Simulated scan of single mutants.
Amino acid sequence: MQLEATSRVRLLLAFGAIYFVWGTTYLANLYALQGIPPFIISALRYLLAGLLLGALALGKGQVMPSGTTIRDLAISGILMLVGGSGLVVVAEQYIASGATAVIVATEPLWFVLLDRPRWRHYFSNKKIVAGLLIGFAGVLLFAQFGPESQATQQNATYQLIGTAIVLAGALLWVVGTLFAARRIQPDSYNLWHTTIQLLAASLFAALIALANGEWSTFSMQSVPLPAWGGLAFLIVFGSLIAYLAFAWLITVQPPALVSTHTFVNPLVAVLVGWLVAGEGVTAGQGIALAVVLVGVVLAQLGKVRSEA
């Protein structure tokens, strides 16, 4: 009975991490961007988190995966953490953190579109088809509505660029997740899996930062304290606590249930962005947010039933 209660507490804490902690990382990105370029943020974030997790894996005496598994973990880590989460940081140079989270909420729709082996089941379900159409319509609506005080041509262009970058990031996160699911045997107890993903992503992000000239203009001495605070939050809460919770949950809970964090993250991000950073939210954006969430929920409900 005590073991059962402990398992329930672990589940609640893990879901709380991916629901609320990931919802606040969008604002942490904004603070980090005050003094650190986007791909350097990703490089430092994943390097420090990977080193900490690797030390823990060594301390537990866990066995390093094989060469093939290391390669597949590295590929999935680069796709998810640099292509997915890394592009989110880039996008937040153009659009608000709440807007970014709303667009990321389309990830379950990308899972349906890209999971080709299950197309026959998915597209024979009217709820999934309706959810896809409604969800993407909501994203297009959100991209059209910005705060009235910023309704200039330049800001409209930024909104479009930011939306496109986030959609690309959501797509790459899903591609990396599906790649990992099909190539890597699940092992919820081997911390080396997540460590390798983090370190590979750190190296790749550092190379992109070098190619972009970010390292040549970066000065640690000129980084303000809030930016270091944002980076520290991303390392501890985003890359260690929440990402580890996600990696564990997908081994013990149905993926459709775990992916419900995409329903909650936008609400948390919009609320925190409004309360802490004073990000404006228009009535049009509120309507678009509701449209996106309706589409995602419809697609997920249909997906669960088609897999039952």
Results as ranks from 00 to 15, higher is better:
A55C: 05
W228K: 09
G146K: 12
S76L: 04
Y31A: 11
S149H: 13
W274H: 07
G284L: 04
I103V: 15
A288Q: 04
L167G: 07
A211R: 12
I287S: 01
L203A: 15
Q34T: 12
W119F: 12
G229C: 05
A17Y: 05
W173Y: 09
L52C: 13
V129S: 12
G278D: 04
F123G: 08
W22V: 06
F15S: 11
A55D: 02
W119V: 04
G273Q: 02
V88G: 14
V270E: 00
N265H: 08
A105Y: 07
G273L: 03
A299Y: 03
S259V: 11
L58P: 12
I235T: 11
L33G: 10
L191M: 12
E92N: 04
A14D: 13
V139W: 06
S222I: 10
A227W: 04
W110R: 00
V21H: 05
A180F: 08
L140V: 15
G162E: 08
G162N: 08
A156L: 13
V166W: 10
Q253F: 03
P255F: 00
I41H: 01
A209R: 05
L234A: 06
G16V: 10
L53P: 13
Y189R: 13
L12Q: 12
V223I: 08
E214G: 07
L191E: 06
